[in-house]
């Protein structure tokens, strides 16, 4: 087994044993989306109009919720120091940890989203694009969030700082994610928006691990 896969499996194992994070993220997602019909009223037309935005914003906040722990636990118990001295470059380790984070947050969020969209009376045409846009967009959320998590490591009230750092960077992902769904529902092509989501991911994939690894080295110095 390669060190890269070993790190992913270890993070997945930790997530499942501790059980908290993934369940909490999905639970937060479901409960928050359910709040909207209570808040804005149960009119199907109104809910259908804002469904895509609600699901995307809530998924984004749910992903953010779990990011604080991405490096924090490893930092506190000395694992991060030990990992930084492993032969596998820290950049690759960040990528592995992001992948594990996405598997326990972004992936379940993408799969639960259609059920919640049903609750919000999303137009039937929007469902495939909803799932597709989340599958393309949530990995970017994990990657961009990793940079914020690494930068806010060791800061007091790191969670608040993390939100301030990361939320502005999430805006492009949110715009194109929602636009893809709205376009399909309005009878236009969703493809350009999905391609842009893919481009964001293609950019974040090499850049975020580089930036996060640099921030982690700074935190360990």
């Amino acid at each position: 087994m390669t060190a890269f896969r070993r790190l992913i499996l270890r993070d997945l194992r930790l997530a499942f044993r501790q059980g908290g994070d993934a369940a909490m993220v999905v639970g937060f997602f479901v409960l928050t989306v359910i709040l909207f019909p209570f808040g804005v009223g149960p009119e199907p037309e109104l809910l259908a109009r804002i469904a895509a935005g609600i699901v995307w914003v809530t998924a984004l906040l749910a992903a953010l919720l779990s990011l604080e722990r991405l490096f924090q636990a490893d930092w506190e118990d000395g694992s991060l120091e030990a990992l930084a001295l492993m032969p596998l470059p820290l950049e690759a380790q960040v990528l592995a940890k992001c992948l594990a984070h996405w598997l326990v947050t972004g992936l379940p969020l993408s799969l639960v989203a259609p059920l919640l969209a049903l609750l919000l009376h999303l137009e039937p045409a929007g469902y495939p694009v909803l799932v597709l846009s989340l599958l393309l967009g949530t990995p970017s959320l994990s990657l961009i969030g990793a940079v914020g998590a690494a930068l806010s490591l060791g800061a007091r009230r790191g969670g608040v700082l993390l939100s301030l750092l990361v939320l502005p960077l999430y805006i492009p992902v949110l715009i194109f994610g929602v636009a893809a769904i709205e376009a399909r529902i309005g009878g236009f092509a969703a493809r350009p928006h999905l391609l842009l989501l893919g481009a964001l991911l293609a950019g974040a994939l090499p850049l975020a691990p580089l930036a996060a690894a640099a921030a982690l080295r700074q935190a360990l110095d």
Binding site: R13, A82, P87
Partner: peptide, 28 residues
């Protein structure tokens, strides 16, 4: 190199063999 600092880098939810297997495996 092996560096053993003040902290033990041990996760409460992993078993002893899993912990050692992970750290050893990361170095092959």
């Amino acid at each position: 190199l092996h560096f053993i600092g003040h902290q033990d880098a041990v996760k409460p939810v992993l078993t002893v063999a899993e912990t050692l297997g992970f750290w050893a495996g990361m170095r092959g």
